[in-house]
Simulated assay, not measured.
Amino acid sequence: MNTVVPVILCGGSGTRLWPRSRVSRPKPFLPLIGELTLFEATIARCPPSIGFAGPVVVTGALHLDHVEAQLGDVEQPSVIVEPCARNTAAAIALAANRLPEDAIMLVCPSDHWIGRPDAFASAAVAASQLASEGWLVSFGIEATAPETGFGYLRQGEEILGGSGAKGFRTAQFVEKPDLETARTFLSAGDYAWNGGIFAFRVKDFLRELATHRPDIDAAVRKAVESGWTEGHRFHPDAELFAAVESESVDYAVMEKTARAAMVPADMEWSDIGNWAALHDAVPRDSDGNSIRGCVGELVDCRNVLVDSDGPRVSVIGLENAIVVVDGDDILITTTAGVQKVGKLSGARNQ
Rank of each mutant, 00 (worst) to 15 (best):
K256A: 11
L278D: 04
V253R: 11
E225C: 07
A260R: 07
A238Y: 02
P236C: 12
E230G: 00
E239I: 01
I272D: 06
A243K: 15
A223R: 09
P236S: 13
W228Q: 10
M254A: 05
H279I: 01
V224M: 13
R259K: 09
M262I: 02
A238D: 14
D280I: 00
T257K: 06
S270W: 02
G231C: 05
A261T: 00
G231T: 00
D237F: 14
G227E: 06
H279A: 12
F241N: 00
V224G: 03
A252S: 15
P236D: 13
E255W: 07
V249P: 02
A242E: 15
N274F: 08
F241R: 04
G231K: 11
A258I: 07
D250Q: 13
S270C: 00
F241E: 14
M267F: 11
V224Q: 03
D250F: 09
W275K: 08
M262N: 01
V224N: 03
W228L: 05
V244K: 00
M267P: 05
A242S: 15
L240I: 11
W269A: 01
A258L: 10
A265K: 05
S246R: 08
E255H: 08
R233W: 04
A260T: 02
E268K: 06
F241D: 12
F241G: 11
V253F: 12
E255K: 14
F234Q: 05
K256Y: 08
D271T: 01
E255L: 06
V253H: 12
M254T: 04
W275D: 09
W269E: 03
V282P: 01
P264V: 02
A261G: 09
D266N: 14
V224T: 03
A258H: 08
D237Q: 13
W275Y: 14
D271C: 02
H232W: 01
D266K: 07
D266E: 13
E245P: 06
